[in-house]
Design a binder for these strands. Structure first.
Length: 900
DNA sequence: CTAAGAATATTTTTT
DNA sequence: ATATTCTTAG
């Protein structure tokens, strides 16, 4: 097989998408390409990290990896040579500026480089969203200044909507406006006002109908006074009056009138649409203006701001040659993951890059473009994803499309079930194949009246059969459903892990800290009471202090009331990003960080959207607990492939009167049904071993699949090989890793004036902390991070010294002996209200071993005390043997001191 | 049994 | 706001 520069994989679920991306990436490396010339983009941070990890891991374990033969085939280099080259390639890779990231991060980087061209400061901050109220204020001000208040009021009246709804619509249009030909909506060709005419005809029809002998209820439906009342009538939207009670009195004249009325009403609706769009786009201009000025003034950009600015920059302001000139290195190879979720505007930004590569002339010779995706898993239409791009782009750049048909993830029963469920439902569905080796598996579809009860039964069954809780995932339609599941399972004593809306600032301990800071800042007693209530203590126990040093104040507070749970510690980390207490009290509501997952112990609960790209042994897909709500976007977008062809104003009943509108509405409905089906496809393809579908009897989410209650295969659970699982009792101390020791809760240092020595010590600790394993390879990686972080502050030769000392440690007999067992780095412990961090904690056969690294012997007494305290903490919380060592990594030698 | 209109229940997915 | 269910006249 030869390396194909232009290739795309249509990768169904579980068909080895990441595997192929990694093989492709590594082949390029072994073919001698510079890592910084390869750009690999994905959609989520999770996916980007996973890819980077897989690449490093594969490089490290290459001799035994199944990627090796594939890389050999693709690159045309024999395996022996590849293995020989491996250390060099790995070293080069780690030294380079690696370009594996999310699309948004990539765009952010470009924009930063060219910020000044875009009229922005290069120091801009990325935020999830702008201050809603501040933006609204600015917008209204803009409206006022431009004398557009009339337009805004008119718009509000036309749409019968509140300002806040209008504001939501504007922000949705903001991310789309580049696709819209706003010129078309300038209000020319507005149809004549036809309310009067319609009413006249309607009255004529009414009197004609009422002149006949007719039932009372039929007479009643013919009564209306205003146009609005007329629009409520059901008969107005019927194709003919020859129906129901009217049948007996029917005569052709009635239908003639009806159709005339209908066309008058349709014309009036069109009029309303034209006026609406005219005003809307006038107002949108002002909105965009306020959005831009907001971004420049606050120096904060949202994801949308970034994308749009990059687009303007690359497509309207700069030549692509200039882009290449400014980027550190020429992008020669582009690898795109999850391509089906790309939005039109995102692709438009990438387009010149691909065109350059495709041109294949001069410096672009030998470039490549590769993308992977699966239109069946396109579920982000609401965010602008256009799955039609997938095939369109393949055609546009003459990229060969190859389907990956084999599912390596799921057992055959699951694959067969999925094939049966989706064949004929998803357009052009190609059944997946199952390799011989993945025979077996289990699928159950059960219909239930009490979803949560059935869910609990299934969970109990899986656990009873020996499944570990973390192997079970429960997928729900909404976050709210996820919370309901979480509640019911916790109630029954199961450990659960949710990836749902648990925002950090929603956690109890964090809320208490925030209230405390508000009390310190504002001095209002309401905040003190809130804080006390959250902590379950008396208000007078809380003192107001001047919190000049926010972090220090919070640490004191956290210690005093012993609320140092994970969230609190993570929050302290987040607080470091704030200037002062003022910024904290006013900005903290916007902190979107989610709270840490509870050690990943327990049953996973998440939405189907979040589960995308993940895989679990046992999956239970739960029907929606509530009923689905159809979205009510006031605008119906009409797409033809990837092109936005038109926009229609959504008016109730309009589809019966306006063919073009009816067509657009129908297309929209089909697209949204497709999304729904795709979501189900994602849900049913997450399982490796067993899949259970719990469906409602009526109005089920699964209705489009026409599932029937069934059971296939045998529920077998391979019991995990006995891992040294810590019991709940043993983990009485908190195992944590947030940030690095140097910036967290290291006890305040003695006033040391030797700045260089302090930096050296920190860098040494940092390197040890960054090492994934105690191996030479890990050391190399860790040193790279240290160089990035401390390079500028360390004296000459310090890096070499660190490397020397750690290398000595790695070959030290005592160290090797002591570190046999499960190792935990940077463990935070809490004991008697004190927080501490243990450099290295080892769980050996005999008990716990504490190891603390030191770079100098100046304060040995203190160090001993520290170890003794840690030892006491571990011993009292676990009740097991505990030993403690100080490990001095000195210039010439390693010295060990046993403290307990 | 049917259609109209009133009453009632329920109300996303996220880089 | 909208989909579904309920009530009721014919």
């Amino acid at each position: 097989m030869e390396f194909e520069p232009f290739l795309a994989y249509e990768a169904s679920a579980g068909s080895g998408k990441t595997f192929n991306l990694v093989v492709r990436y590594l082949s390029l490396l072994f073919m001698g390409e510079n890592p910084s010339s390869i750009v690999a983009l994905t959609f989520t941070n999770k996916a980007a990290n996973e890819m980077l990890e897989r690449i490093i891991l594969t490089l490290e374990e290459l001799p035994t990896r199944s990627e090796l033969p594939q890389i050999s085939r693709l690159s045309g280099i024999d395996e022996a040579t590849i293995l020989e080259e491996r250390p060099k390639v790995l070293a080069r890779f780690l030294r380079s500026d690696i370009q594996i990231s999310t699309l948004d991060k990539f765009f952010g980087r470009i924009l930063r480089k060219f910020a000044l061209n875009a009229g922005l400061m290069p120091t801009f901050k990325t935020v999830q969203s702008h201050h809603e109220s501040a933006l609204l204020e600015r917008f209204l001000n803009e409206v006022e200044v431009s004398n557009a208040s009339g337009a805004l009021i008119h718009l509000s009246l036309l749409s019968d909507k509140r300002l806040s709804d209008l504001f939501t619509l504007l922000s949705a249009l903001y991310s789309k406006y580049k696709e819209i030909d706003t010129q078309r909506y300038d209000g020319k060709n507005t149809p004549e006002e036809s309310v009067g005419y319609a009413m006249e005809l309607a009255h004529e029809l009414a009197s004609l109908v009422l002149s006949k002998p007719l039932s009372d209820r039929a007479r009643k439906t013919m009564q209306f006074e205003h146009y609005e009342e007329l629009l409520e009538k059901t008969w107005l939207f019927k194709p003919s009056m020859e129906y129901w009670d009217f049948k007996k009195a029917y005569e052709p004249r009635m239908d003639a009138l009806l159709h005339e009325i209908q066309s008058a009403v349709a014309s009036q609706m069109r009029r309303r649409e034209v006026l609406y769009f005219k005003e809307l786009f006038a107002v949108l201009k002002l909105y965009i203006k306020s959005r831009q000025s907001m971004a420049t003034q606050s120096n904060e950009l949202s994801f949308d701001d970034i994308t749009l600015n990059v687009h303007t920059l690359l497509r309207e302001k700069l030549e692509s040659e200039f882009l290449y000139f400014r980027l550190d290195s020429r992008i020669k190879h582009l690898l795109l993951d999850e391509f089906q979720d790309t939005s039109v505007i995102q692709f438009d930004i990438l387009r010149p890059l691909i065109e350059e590569i495709r041109s294949g002339v001069g410096v672009n010779e030998g470039g490549s473009f590769f993308f992977v995706g699966d239109v069946k898993q396109s579920i982000y239409r609401f965010r602008g994803g256009v799955s039609a791009l997938f095939h369109e782009v393949a055609e546009l750049f003459d990229v060969r499309l190859e389907p990956l048909k084999v599912n390596y993830r799921s057992k055959s029963e699951i694959v067969n079930f999925v094939n049966r469920a989706f064949e004929g439902k998803i357009k052009g569905y190609i059944p997946q194949q199952s390799p011989q080796s993945s025979c077996g598996g289990y699928v159950e579809v059960l219909l239930s009246d009490d979803l949560l009860e059935s869910l609990c039964e299934r969970v109990a069954l899986l656990i009873e059969k020996g499944s570990a809780p973390e192997e079970i995932a429960i997928l729900t339609a909404t976050n709210k459903d996820g919370s309901a599941v979480e509640e019911v399972l916790s109630e029954r004593g199961y450990d659960v892990v949710t990836e749902t809306t648990a925002r950090l600032i929603a956690q109890r301990s964090v809320r208490a800290i925030i209230e405390y800071l508000r009390y310190c800042y504002f001095g209002e007693s309401i905040y003190r009471s809130n804080c006390a209530a959250l902590l379950g203590i008396q208000s007078d126990q809380i003192d107001r202090i001047r919190a000049d040093e926010v972090v220090t104040a919070v640490i004191t507070f956290v210690r005093r009331f012993t609320i140092a749970d994970k969230s609190a510690l993570m929050f302290i980390e987040a607080l470091r990003g704030y200037r002062d207490i003022e910024e904290v009290v006013f900005e903290i509501d916007r902190l979107e960080t989610s709270s840490p997952q509870s050690d990943l112990k327990g049953i996973r609960i998440m939405t189907v959207h979040k589960s995308k790209g993940l895989e679990f042994e046992h999956v239970i897909v739960l029907d929606r607990l509530g009923t689905a709500r159809s979205h009510n976007d006031p605008i119906v977008y009409e797409y033809e492939g990837v092109q936005l062809r038109g926009m229609h104003y959504r008016i109730k009943g309009r589809e019966a009167l306006d063919m073009a509108y009816a067509k657009a509405l129908e297309a929209e409905k089909m697209a949204s049904d497709e999304d729904q089906l795709n979501a189900l496809y994602v849900a049913l393809t997450r399982a490796a071993q067993s899949l259970m579908v719990i469906a409602k009897v009526k109005n089920s989410w699964f209705d489009p699949l026409e599932l029937v209650a069934s059971e296939q295969g045998v529920l077998e659970i391979k019991v995990q090989k006995e891992k040294p699982v810590q019991t709940e009792k043993a983990v009485n101390f908190k195992a944590l890793h947030f940030g690095t020791q140097e910036e967290t809760l290291r006890p305040p240092k003695e006033a040391t004036h030797d700045y260089a020595a302090v930096q050296f010590g920190l860098a040494l600790h940092y390197t040890l902390e960054m090492m994934g394993e105690f191996s030479t390879v890990s050391l190399e990686i860790a040193l790279e991070s240290t160089r990035n972080r401390f390079g500028s502050v360390l004296p000459m030769g310090a890096m070499g010294e660190i490397e020397k000392r750690i290398e000595r440690l790695l070959s030290d007999q005592t160290f090797r002996h002591l570190t046999q067992g499960d190792r935990y780095k940077e463990q935070m412990i809490r004991h008697k209200g004190n927080l501490g961090v243990i450099d290295l904690l080892v769980r050996s056969e005999k008990g716990w071993i504490i190891i603390d690294y030191k770079s100098g012997r100046e304060e040995e007494e203190k160090h001993r005390d520290q170890i003794n305290r840690y030892g006491e903490a571990i011993r009292s919380s676990t009740g097991e043997e505990t030993a403690g060592y100080l490990c001095y990594l000195l210039e010439e030698t390693i010295e060990w001191i046993k403290c307990l």
